[in-house]
Structures are given as C-alpha cells and as structure tokens.
C-alpha cells in the first residue's frame, strides 16, 4: 500500500497529498501523523490538499480527527489549498470542518503556525459537524 510522505521543516510537519486518497491510505496517514508528532515534538501540522479533486465525508473526518488528535498532542493543524469546487461540495455535504484552521496556501499556513497571522478558524459547534 502506498503511503503519503510526511516532511519535516523545523518544528512543522508538512503533508502534501498528491494522490486520489483511498480510505486505507487516509487512515494510515492519520496514524503516521500522530506518531511523527510524538517522535519529533512538532508544534504544527500543515496538510496541503490543493491537489485533491474531492474531499468526501471519510477524508473530511480524517482531517477533523487529525486536527483534534494533534491538538491533544500540543500541535496545531492547518489545512491549506482547498479547491473552491471541493469547498462548495463539502458545505453542501454538510461538513464544515469546524475547529480546523484553513489557509489559502502553504506560505500563509506556515505564517499561521509561526504565530504571525491569526488565520481563519471556524467556531467549534457543540455537535462538531453540522450547521443546518
């Protein structure tokens, strides 16, 4: 099974998803990331999804869970580069990734992690998934 590579830049882990994610690869990535956060003591995780043509509820959940797990491990997650069509579809699907930080591109994501920018963070709803 293929694995999504995780790069380390300073105290940030960078994941650039370049393949059409199948479920087992997404799950493996989630496991790998938490392990790497612990191993490296990383303070931030940047997930670049600019190459992803779709994000369905499974991958959406993987992203939300990863963000929550990293938070517990004292690392912040920023999701960058989502395509407009993907964002529109996710909202229609009922997924707003509440509590996950987002940024337009890798540069801005890194800036958020470096604490230079406030970034955009959706308010965490109680049910943590649905707004409608």
């Amino acid at each position: 099974m293929d694995r999504v590579p995780i790069l380390r830049i300073g105290d940030v882990l960078l994941v650039s998803i370049q393949v059409d994610l199948q479920d087992d690869i997404a799950l493996a990535l989630q496991d790998d990331l938490s392990q790497r956060i612990v191993d490296t003591g990383a303070k931030g995780v940047l997930i670049d999804i600019s190459a992803l043509e779709i994000v369905d509820s499974f991958v959406g959940r993987m992203i939300s869970t990863t963000a929550a797990v990293s938070r517990v491990l004292d690392a912040e997650t920023v999701v960058v580069g989502m395509q407009p069509a993907v964002a529109i579809t996710l909202v229609e699907l009922g997924l707003t990734l509440s509590g996950v930080r987002t940024a337009l591109d890798v540069d801005r994501g890194l800036a958020i992690l470096a604490g230079r920018e406030s970034g955009v963070v959706a308010e965490a709803d109680d049910d943590d998934q649905l707004d409608d």
């Binding site: 999701v79 960058v80 993907v86 964002a87 591109d105 970034g119 955009v120 959706a122």
Partner: peptide
C-alpha cells in the same frame, strides 16, 4: 450566502 461564507472559510478566507 451562508454556504458561500462557510466555503470561503474552508479555503482560508473570511
């Protein structure tokens, strides 16, 4: 309008 605002947030914009 609401959905647009939510989608914009997913992109990283307000």
């Amino acid at each position: 309008l609401l959905k647009t605002v939510q989608a914009a947030r997913l992109l990283g914009a307000e």
